[in-house]
């Protein structure tokens, strides 16, 4: 159907979670929330978590959407990346991903598939 509007609507709904100019770790994102990754930093020494996240598509500029929480302890999380790939990860690792609002100036490094939203 008309996706961009639905997308806007979802972004609006997530507004209170992501907020304007408000950043938060992916682990605190509300279900249904949409945002753009600002930074991926690992706290472990060998950068294992950071590399793992990057390899699964959690890279700066990528668009993320929180789809599902697990039924026990609301863990793990299912996150849609750039509307193409869904990845499951635990809150613990998700805290290494910093997410900002979708309509951010990160357009420079925005992936192709999200350009239409950034310009709409």
């Amino acid at each position: 159907m008309n996706r961009p509007n639905e997308q806007e609507h979802r972004a609006f709904k997530a507004g209170c979670a992501v907020g304007l100019g408000f950043t938060q770790p992916l682990s605190l994102m509300r279900r249904g929330g949409v945002g753009r990754i600002l930074a991926v930093q690992s706290s472990d020494g060998n950068q294992e978590v950071e590399r793992g996240l990057l390899e699964m598509g959690f890279v700066e500029g990528a668009q993320v959407e929180m789809l599902h929480y697990g039924w026990l302890g609301r863990d793990p999380l299912a996150v849609r990346i750039n509307q193409t790939m869904t990845v499951a990860l635990r809150r613990c690792e998700a805290s290494a991903v910093l997410v900002g609002p979708l309509r951010d100036a990160a357009v420079e490094s925005a992936p192709v598939m999200t350009l239409e939203y950034a310009s709409s």
């Binding site: 590399r51 990057l54 192709v112």
Partner: peptide, 29 residues
């Protein structure tokens, strides 16, 4: 083994290539 920054560079290169090659984005599933 690629470093985190090397993986980021691969991501950027993928974006560049796709910008040249993808004529029309598919609708998300």
């Amino acid at each position: 083994e690629p470093s985190p920054d090397a993986i980021r560079a691969y991501h950027r290169e993928v974006e560049r290539v796709l910008q040249e090659a993808v004529i029309q984005e598919g609708a998300p599933e």
